[in-house]
Design a protein around this nucleic acid. Structure first.
Lengths: 213, 213
DNA sequence: GGATATCAAATTGGCACCAATTTATGTGCC
DNA sequence: GGCACATAAATTGGTGCCAATTTGATATCC
């Protein structure tokens, strides 16, 4: 087995065992660990059935992601929602996502449109039947595929990151079902704009979609 | 001593003892740890005179920052320069920094212009007398202060992050002294544009400055 | 009765040891 | 002479334990 193969299988093994970081992150995103909650290592150890070092590594990573805060000798707690920062992140998203609207329209083929349509529909279905987390992930999937059409992989990763950075609790964001349904409708409208090749329409829809979210 | 005070002093203590992560990061940025170098834990332990767990935490953080790659049971090595990713990051920087040019011009007062002029001059001085790392930091300081005028703190942090993400070795970027002097000159021109209130000029200068860097 | 000091319980965080995997070296075989 | 195999050295990564710090409660003093 050569070096590259070893690397590949190692990565595969890493992928099939989702680490604790991801689990804690999902619980924070789902609102099961509300902002301000103290994350005691022994609790996490039991809750996720993992070892102490794993917990520590996960907490340190979440601090790097700025989702939890660390106070030396006191512990870790879920980061409080910061209104200003959320505003600034939305601002950045508007700049980036509207800036690449033309590329998205230019690069989108028929199959891409169909794909986006499917993802948008999936979101709509989950409004009725799915959990909050499933909705969150369906939404993320739609936006990731949309952004991927801009042809800049880094951009996709970056926006995924800064999304997580502030939207600590999607529950607090998507308050009403009406707002969620509105989001789903906006997704469809965005796909329509792409299909029609209307860049300005896509930009305006994107802007409003992000700011109202 | 109340909770907030404890937090403040704790943070101060954290700040006064620069952790290993920062030291390794600087060595990577300065080119003293070239791309591809295997970072053996025992070597780092001795080199930075720290403990094993500190080394591991630092390495894990650098993996999160995507400056270091991890291969399970094999170790950590400095991430290879990826041309495509560097290109994509530059692309993102152009979008963001030109998008806020108007805000920068609008918000810049006389003192801000003077401040930027001073930072630009400092960069020029260091071209002759400073080390590569000092130049890198002076450049970073100029760009951070410039961006700060846009009134979006998150944006400043974000661009600082993605800058580090790819420019693994500034040495390989700033090949010639001529190019560095050119950069310094461009800084001055950008301040000129701000002083004159010429938004379009600032945008074009920013665009070229980032793409040629 | 209220505030302050003291003590015990709990939690964090570092340290040292040990097992598992991989790489390098040397030997034997074809 | 080259290749495969086996053994040994080195490195990673995990586990458990113990010290240091903090928190909450109790007792004491004003």
């Amino acid at each position: 087995m050569n070096s590259l193969e070893a690397e590949a299988t190692a990565r595969a093994k890493e992928a099939e065992t989702p680490d604790v970081t991801e689990l804690i992150l999902q619980d924070i995103l789902a609102g099961r660990l509300p902002p301000g909650t103290w994350l005691k290592q022994i609790d996490l150890e039991r809750r996720y059935n993992c070892t102490r070092p794993e917990v520590r590594r996960a907490l340190d990573r979440l601090v790097q992601k700025r989702l939890v805060e660390h106070v030396p000798n006191r512990g870790y707690h879920v980061h409080e929602q910061d209104g200003r920062r959320a505003q600034e992140v939305s601002d950045i998203r508007v700049i980036l996502e509207t800036a690449v609207s033309d590329r998205i329209v230019a690069n989108a083929g028929e199959d891409d449109v169909a794909n986006l349509r499917a993802l948008a529909s999936r979101f709509d279905e989950l409004v009725l039947t799915g959990t909050m987390l499933e909705l969150y992930e369906a939404n993320l999937a739609f936006h990731r595929h949309l952004l991927a059409l801009a042809g800049n992989q880094e951009l996709v990763e970056l926006i995924t990151e800064i999304r997580q950075r502030t939207s600590s609790a999607p529950v607090s964001q998507w308050r009403t079902r009406a707002r969620i349904e509105q989001s789903g409708h906006e997704h469809q409208l965005m796909v329509d704009a792409i299909e029609k090749g209307d860049v300005d329409m896509l930009k305006e829809l994107t802007r409003r979609h992000i700011l109202q979210a």
